[in-house]
């Protein structure tokens, strides 16, 4: 396992480096921060002065080597907008997004695996049809729409929940629910099809023939083997949430990495974009390692070496 992790770390390090280099050059193709940071009626002399102050007047290669020097020390530079170290801003925002992602994917997994397993136990039953229909709807609805409708129904209409904010437990319910609906819909479908396949395996038939109880067959014998594709999809969805909580964070006023990144992209705050990409990529790398370990625990046939 140690050797496997070392190899993964080396390859991921190379990928991360290439990613950050790519982001560095692509960000600079999108325009000058001096154009977007300063008001539209700022004179060109002020734009030139701004570029000089922040080093954007230097050739791109010079900027790149300056950036590389900083990267070795994990110094991504200062945020243009906030005059603070970019990495500190990203690390401040990351826990909120990780918590959002954790709660969302945990709830989605629990609900989806139980629903998928029960639906697979009797395919084409009423429960299965309803679960399949709802999961399709959940997987298809855009987050933005669910969020606004959720606010109108549960905050404005029923007055059960607050519209937004982060201060209390109640304020997390809508954002977590919105983020969980789509992965939940997808995982229900994967769990259902995987369980149907596993439930027709010989060892399940043997267990039935021996008179094992349905609950035991589903949740002890079959589910463990049906979990591999579920974990793959759940991992993908968790990575998607870490990357893509932008809409939910923006709508509900969550100070997470998605909101920080979208603000930074809008204002061409290059240092924060680069630090954000790096930290997010590391988080996703670690998530992948966790998934691999989960694979090994669930299926001893998988040999890490």
């Amino acid at each position: 396992m140690g050797s496997y992790l070392s190899k993964r770390a080396v390859w991921s390090g190379i990928s991360l480096f290439l990613l950050v280099v790519m982001v560095f050059f692509m960000a600079r193709l999108t325009g000058s921060p001096a154009d977007l940071y300063l008001p539209i009626d700022a004179p060109n002399s002020m734009r030139e002065e701004f570029a000089r102050l922040h080093g954007f007047d230097q050739p791109v290669l010079v900027q790149f080597f300056t950036f590389l020097r900083g990267l070795v020390m994990l110094d991504f530079g200062e945020s243009l907008r906030q005059n603070r170290p970019a990495l500190a801003l990203v690390l401040e925002a990351m826990p909120t997004t990780l918590l959002l992602a954790f709660y969302s994917i945990a709830i989605a997994l629990i609900v989806a695996v139980v629903t998928g397993a029960l639906a697979a136990w009797r395919p084409n039953s009423i429960f299965d049809r309803i679960a399949t229909l709802l999961s399709l709807i959940g997987a298809s609805l855009p987050n933005f729409w669910i969020a606004i409708v959720g606010v109108l129904v549960f905050a404005v209409g029923l007055e059960w929940l607050p519209t937004s904010g982060t201060g209390s437990v109640a304020q997390w319910i809508l954002p977590v629910a919105v983020l969980a609906i789509r992965p939940c819909g997808l995982i229900v479908q994967i769990a259902r099809s995987s369980m149907i396949s596993v439930l027709s395996a010989a060892y399940v038939k043997t267990a039935r023939a021996k008179g094992a109880k349905s609950r035991r067959i589903i949740f002890v014998h079959a589910l463990r083997n049906a979990m591999l594709p579920v974990i793959t999809v759940a991992g993908d969805q968790a990575a998607g949430i870490i990357n893509g909580a932008v809409i939910v964070e923006t709508i509900f006023g969550f100070p997470g990495i998605g909101k920080l990144m979208i603000d930074s992209i809008t204002y061409r705050d290059f240092a924060v974009i680069q630090a954000g990409v790096m930290v997010t990529a590391i988080a996703i790398f670690m998530l992948n390692v966790v998934i691999d370990i989960a694979y090994a625990i669930l299926d001893p046939r998988i040999r890490m070496n």
């Binding site: 606004i148 606010v151 007055e159 519209t163 937004s164 709508i251 006023g253």
Partner: peptide, 18 residues
Amino acid sequence: FVFRGESALRAAMVKTGE
């Protein structure tokens, strides 16, 4: 001062008394 990017949500906040 709280920051909410979506117009519908800002309007809802006043409607609910938040």
